[in-house]
């Protein structure tokens, strides 16, 4: 099974990189751009067929390593 994990900063945590991207887009002429937040995408392959088990294991991975839950939140997407 393949999975995709999105790690992003929690709302309210300052995101200097996101700010810089927003600023850059504005100066490139994309005037409609407002707030920008950036994050990470992590694609994983799992030797697991049970969706429930896969989800639980991915949540565990996020809590332990993939996200720093002090400042980051995560979303999990199971594919195929």
């Amino acid at each position: 099974m393949r999975a995709r994990v999105f790690v992003t900063l929690k709302p309210g945590v300052l995101d200097p990189q996101g700010k810089a991207i927003g600023h850059a887009l504005n100066s490139l002429g994309f005037k409609s751009v407002g707030d920008v937040r950036q994050g990470k995408v992590i694609d994983l392959e799992l030797a697991e067929t049970d969706r429930e088990k896969a989800s639980a294991s991915l949540r565990d991975m996020c809590e332990k390593l993939l996200a720093n839950t002090v400042i980051e939140k995560y979303d999990i997407e199971l594919r195929s």
Partner: peptide
């Protein structure tokens, strides 16, 4: 630098 590209590139 409109893109502050140093910052973006260093990640």
């Amino acid at each position: 630098d409109p893109a502050s590209r140093a910052g973006l590139a260093a990640s």
